[in-house]
């Protein structure tokens, strides 16, 4: 309980899991796991809504006509790779390697941003084909599901960017380590959601 007696010299003998050395750190990690639990339910509801309404295209383009799998596969590849780089960032953190941490989380940031760019391009492309948000229940539920995921990616990018700025001043400490760790947890969660979107929306949609 007492967090005041953390006297171990962090620079010379870093514990293996720096993020769990304080009660605050442990709380943060459990808290984010619970938050991810709530987010899972949130996405489950959006998936349920989409699955109910996906055939209600009301004369607009269907998923089969819209979805181009090569582009989506590229986006999937980029996002899954960003999950890997965030793991490498946490590994660097455990080795007390600040440069490595900044490098790998920086790459995560770039990959996330390019995923978001692809998604924005995709949306613009769809609207030009007449697949608009207000067109049909299918369109509304498609944009809400993928858009909510995209908003989560954007939020994650801002989060990691903020942490990278902090790391320049503070390095790897028992205060910053849990923050990077939970940001990476959140990032994995976003990737897992995308795997489901890829399967349920795009693969099932393209299959008709």
């Amino acid at each position: 309980m007492n967090t005041g007696n953390q006297t171990a010299d962090v620079a010379t003998e870093t514990p293996l899991h720096l993020e769990r050395t304080t009660l605050e750190g442990k709380n943060k990690i459990l808290g984010v796991w619970l938050f991810i639990g709530a987010e899972t339910v949130l996405f489950a509801c959006l998936f349920g809504t989409y699955l109910t309404l996906r055939n209600q295209t009301m004369g607009g383009p269907t998923g089969q006509e819209l979805f181009s799998l090569p582009l989506i596969a590229l986006a999937t590849f980029i996002l899954l790779t960003s999950s890997l780089t965030s793991v490498l960032g946490v590994v660097s953190m455990h080795q007390n390697d600040l440069r490595g941490l900044q490098l790998w989380f920086g790459i995560t940031l770039l990959l996330g941003a390019s995923f978001l760019g692809l998604e924005i391009y995709e949306f613009i492309h769809y609207t030009s084909l007449g697949h608009r948000f207000t067109q049909s229940a299918f369109a509304s539920s498609f944009y809400t599901l993928t858009g909510t995921h995209g908003a989560h990616v954007l939020f994650g990018l801002c989060w990691i960017l903020g942490l990278l700025i902090q790391s320049r001043k503070r390095g790897i400490t028992k205060e910053t380590a849990p923050r990077f760790y939970v940001a990476s947890l959140y990032w994995h969660f976003i990737d897992v959601i995308w795997v489901f979107i890829f399967t349920v929306v795009y693969l099932m949609g393209a299959a008709g």
Partner: peptide, 14 residues
């Protein structure tokens, strides 16, 4: 607010 069609039958909603 934004004219989505989740719940209105006319737009295919339920």
């Amino acid at each position: 607010l934004f004219g989505a069609q989740f719940f209105s039958t006319a737009g295919g909603g339920d």
